[in-house]
Design a protein around this nucleic acid. Structure first.
Length: 425
DNA sequence: TCTGGGGTCCTAGGACCC
DNA sequence: TCTGGGGTCCTAGGACCC
């Protein structure tokens, strides 16, 4: 039986790299990309990491560093990143029959039985770079956790960093232990801050110590999750490749506002737009939901302001995927929790009780499903998919726009918008 | 002045049932 | 006044991920 082999391909500084593809003068310069509302740092180029800009930091706390080093700052441009991601993933799918797209910038590939995996990884890396301009690193191992850790080595540790590829299978035993002695437990996939701190208190600081720890002891102190991680580090697969993304069990659509909001109309408009986005996601996976929750929040960082964080769940009479049903329910819920006199910072909706729209649980008192109504929904889906989200929207969404987020530093949508195509001179 | 958004899984504890 | 034991289901909260 052949040993299972997994490759984890991860784009380097993905958002920053996307910006660079279309503005090559950014090469070699420090770049950061901000979260929605231009709030926090969510991506950094290597140069920005080197000068000490922390991940997730509020941008206003970094303004000195930004000025001092001439850091290029960009708002996030998800239209661009999403499209670039699709292109990269398409290329990667050519390199394995089985691919799991794990996030916008990384995927697992099944390398089981592939001849010369390291050479294949190097080829793939050059190919992606040539066809999209995006640099990637590849980690290879017998389990997903090892592939992930291998990717860390390919990105951070010389001499592997120079080639951008790494495989645990090609190491001498000596090198293997030596390497593990140099990596902190916190770098392992699944070991976050809390668990790392607790491991430290047990005297487990380096991956070499975690690998040799007794899984039963780990189970006792932590949970099955961490026990699985230890087994995976030892080469026993506990996590399988999932090619099909499972349907979402919960859908959240929410945003912070560009400004603080006091009026009900503005909240109504924002909630209506979140309902549209949420139900669109729901319909895309051919599901219905039976529970809608509306929430609004004041700015928790403004200690001088009175705080109010209400939420109200609404159970539907029967599961639905009709945006009109959710709009009505959401608006009623919002009116019930809204209190004047607060300055709101965020609003959102959550869809739960999600199931396939093929399941039909009839309710004695529920009205028959209306085929005309469903046809209307499908037409709406098609129009918005073809001409862009928000082409047809609920009238409530037009009530106010003061809630719109700030995106003052966004680059053009080079690949998805005719008006913003790059120009070659 | 300025502080993201969207997910998953696991566990503990309470409600409830027999 | 005395007051079992075991099972399931649900929810809240904690941990993780990108």
């Amino acid at each position: 039986m052949t040993t299972p082999l997994v490759a984890l391909v991860d784009c380097n500084n993905f958002y920053a790299s996307c910006e660079r593809v279309f503005e090559p003068w950014l090469e070699g310069r420090p770049i950061i990309v901000l979260s929605n509302n231009d709030g926090c740092v969510v991506a950094r180029s290597n140069e920005s990491k080197a000068i000490g800009i922390p991940m997730g930091a509020p941008v206003h706390e970094c303004k000195d560093l930004i000025r001092q080093y001439g850091v290029v700052v960009r708002s996030s441009n998800y239209a661009l990143y999403g499209d670039m991601s699709r292109r990269v993933m398409n290329i990667l799918s050519e390199y394995s029959p089985n691919q799991e797209v794990y996030s916008i910038d990384e995927c697992f590939l099944d390398f089981t039985g592939m001849p010369k995996p390291l050479e294949l990884a190097a080829k793939l890396r050059g190919d992606v770079r040539k066809r999209t301009g995006i640099p990637v690193a590849v980690g290879i191992g017998r389990t997903k956790t090892l592939a992930k850790l291998g990717n860390y080595c390919a990105k951070r540790i010389e001499p592997y960093k120079a080639s951008g590829v790494f495989s645990w299978e090609e190491l001498e035993a000596m090198d293997y232990m030596h390497l593990l002695c140099g990596i902190d437990v916190g770098e392992v996939w699944g070991i976050g801050r809390r668990i790392a701190a607790k491991l430290e208190s047990l005297g487990i600081h380096k991956v070499s110590q975690l690998v040799t720890a007794d899984p039963k002891l780990i189970r006792k102190h932590f949970s099955v999750v961490v026990e699985r991680t230890v087994n995976e580090l030892n080469g026993t697969p506990c996590l399988s490749l999932e090619e099909m993304a499972p349907d979402k069990k919960q859908i959240i659509a929410s945003r912070s506002f560009g400004n603080l909001i006091t009026d009900l109309e503005d909240l109504e408009a924002s909630v209506a737009s979140h309902v549209s986005r949420g139900v669109e996601k729901l319909r895309r996976q051919h599901s219905t939901a039976s529970l809608l929750t509306v929430f609004i929040q004041t700015n928790r960082f403004r200690l001088q302001d009175p705080q109010y964080h209400p939420s109200l769940p609404v159970a539907l009479v029967q599961p639905s995927a009709d945006v009109g049903v959710f709009q009505t329910a959401a608006n009623q819920a919002l009116r019930r929790i809204y209190r004047a006199g607060y300055r709101y910072k965020k609003a959102g909706i959550m869809l739960q009780g999600i199931q396939s729209d093929q399941v039909w649980q009839t309710d004695l008192f529920a009205p028959e499903p209306d085929p005309v109504r469903e046809a209307l929904m499908q037409t709406l889906d098609r129009v918005n998919r073809k001409y862009g989200r928000g082409t047809v929207k609920a009238a409530t969404e037009l009530l106010g726009s003061r809630w719109q987020m700030k995106q003052e530093l966004r680059s053009p949508r080079y690949t998805t918008c005719w008006e913003e195509l790059p120009v070659v001179r």
